[in-house]
Simulated assay, not measured.
Amino acid sequence: MTHLLGVDRGGAALVLAPGVYAPQSDTFLLADALGREPLRPGAEVLDVGTGTGALALTAARRGARVTAVDSSWRAVAATRLNAVLARRRVRVLHGDLLDPAMGRRFDLIVCNPPYVPAPHARPPRRGAAVAWDAGHDGRAVLDRICDGAAELLNPSGALLMVHSALSGVGATLERLQGAGLDAAVVERRLVPFGPVLRSRRKWLERRGLIAPGEDKEELVIIRADRA
């Protein structure tokens, strides 16, 4: 199943699986934010949509007790393998977004969800695009995370989430605040369009999501605290 090698933010090798989202600019931006979190030893951390496990391992290296979730069995296998290779303990669960962690509470939730606006209204059920396509407005998964995260947070716990400004930063903040969380943008970064956005440039222009000739995407890190 696995045959590629990548690296996480710290430069450690990761085994990648075909069809599983490899660490990219959004992963690294979120990993940097995670690195600044004041995690106590033994803090409970949930990584939603773990992919190769890069963020889960970042938290585990800091002494956190990490649970990682993904809907892809390939991602689950890749994360389990990467945890073994890194000699870190990570509990890896298969399932849909927050569902496998229901009934538990965490000090920190990290999430790099699918958020790319797509010509198809419904997100794909299979294939590599599951990791990025999220409906016409890019919010098919974001809204579910916003609505459900508070229930899984300990008092004073927090959600760290990355997504594109194309998906509606204001909508995310309003949704999180409506769920009882104190939410704010804590970092922004411009990155060049990747292959997916380059292939959709004309469609994005027609939708009014980008200006003609625009070739950079703004990524945001949103932090939402439970009071």
Score class of each variant (00 low, 15 high):
L173T: 11
G138Q: 01
A60L: 05
L30S: 02
A68V: 11
T50A: 05
A33I: 01
I145W: 13
D47C: 07
V130N: 04
A183S: 14
D215I: 03
E151V: 06
G49I: 00
T58R: 14
R89Y: 11
G10I: 03
D47R: 05
W132K: 10
G180L: 12
G148I: 02
R87M: 02
G51H: 00
G127V: 09
R139V: 05
A183C: 14
Q24A: 12
L219Y: 00
V90A: 01
R87I: 02
P119N: 01
A60N: 02
G127N: 09
A131L: 03
A59F: 05
P195E: 12
L152W: 04
A211W: 08
G51Y: 05
G194D: 08
D26P: 05
G11A: 00
G42W: 00
T52S: 10
Y21D: 07
E218I: 06
Y115R: 08
E44F: 10
M161Q: 10
A131Q: 03
G138A: 06
L209R: 08
T50R: 04
D70N: 08
P18S: 03
R65E: 11
K216G: 06
H136F: 11
V185G: 12
A171T: 12
A134Y: 09
V110H: 03
L14P: 02
T52K: 02
H120R: 15
P23E: 00
R207L: 04
P114S: 11
V76R: 15
H120Q: 15
G180A: 12
H3G: 08
D182R: 15
G49L: 00
R200L: 15
G53D: 02
V84M: 11
G53Q: 05
R89H: 15
G127F: 06
L57Q: 07
P195L: 12
E205M: 00
